[in-house]
């Protein structure tokens, strides 16, 4: 059982996960930020590995990816940095990025490197369910690395059931069909969607992401699911002076 299962099985309060891009704002800031987030009480973190064509991302994460690439970040370098991960951080860690970089690294090699670094799961939005199931599932399972799928309000019930079956940590719920960084708008139709999901009694817990940026949106998300994931709002914050030392300040704007 990896750290993610442990967390979802034991903690009762709403969970907060935070995303940031490896190699941004500085090439060597990856682990300092991870440590800062753990100290500020974040439950788990998602480290993005940058890609030149991040088509699910809005301007904020596009920009952090581009800067990280210009800083010289690569997947190889990231795994090099992550050798120190488990000496400094004990909360669950996921990697998030696009499939082409994983494919070039080699999917089996990637899963192995995750396991060796103590990475608990990955989110690869453009790796489709069919290819995952047919070609890559065993690699992930063999190394006890969870693959996390996304669902949106337009995902059919049949497909959600299938995703639930293939998932083994949590399911990443998008509040609406959008790229990252748009603010969460909870209206009656999204409430109906969350209620529909609750009724389905899925085997895996769910977390809401995309658009969580303050107390209100976090609390709203936690009403329906196990918690929420914050990305663009934090990446934007990292651009402010001395941000790494002020992480608790940021976390307090999301969860009291």
């Amino acid at each position: 059982m990896n750290r993610l299962h442990q967390l979802f099985n034991t903690k009762e309060e709403p969970l907060l996960s935070i995303y940031y891009t490896a190699g941004y704002p500085d090439i060597n800031s990856t682990l300092d930020i991870a440590e800062g987030l753990e100290k500020a009480g974040v439950d788990f973190i998602e480290i993005g590995f940058p890609y030149s064509d991040p088509l699910a991302d809005g301007p904020v994460i596009q920009n952090s990816s581009l800067k990280a690439l210009n800083n010289g970040m690569t997947l190889k370098l990231l795994f090099e940095q992550l050798k120190e991960l488990r000496n400094r951080v004990s909360i669950p860690v996921l990697l998030m990025g696009y499939f082409n970089t994983v494919l070039q690294y080699g999917v089996p090699e990637f899963c192995k490197a995750c396991a060796e670094a103590g990475v608990d799961g990955v989110i690869v939005p453009d790796l489709p369910m069919y290819e995952y199931e047919e070609l890559y599932k065993d690699c992930f399972l063999d190394h006890d690395v969870s693959n996390v799928f996304l669902i949106t309000p337009l995902t059919s019930e049949e497909r959600i059931r299938k995703i639930d079956k293939l998932s083994n940590s949590f399911i990443y719920l998008l509040s609406s069909s959008s790229t990252t960084g748009k603010n969460l708008d909870v209206n009656t139709s999204s409430e109906a969607y969350y209620a529909r999901l609750q009724k389905m009694e899925l085997n895996n817990p769910t977390m809401i992401g995309f658009g969580i940026h303050d107390h209100n949106s976090f609390n709203k998300a936690a009403e329906f699911t196990r918690g929420a994931i914050v990305g663009s709002a934090f990446v934007k914050f990292l651009d402010t002076p001395d941000a790494i030392n002020r992480i608790p300040e940021f976390v307090a704007t999301i969860r009291k």
């Binding site: 453009d126 069919y130 949106t152």
Partner: peptide, 19 residues
């Protein structure tokens, strides 16, 4: 029928584009 030409093709898209 799966959208492949030999080894190539498929639909490598995020869930938001799937429907």
């Amino acid at each position: 029928e799966k959208g492949y030409y030999g080894d190539f093709g498929g639909a490598y898209i995020p869930e938001m584009l799937y429907p």
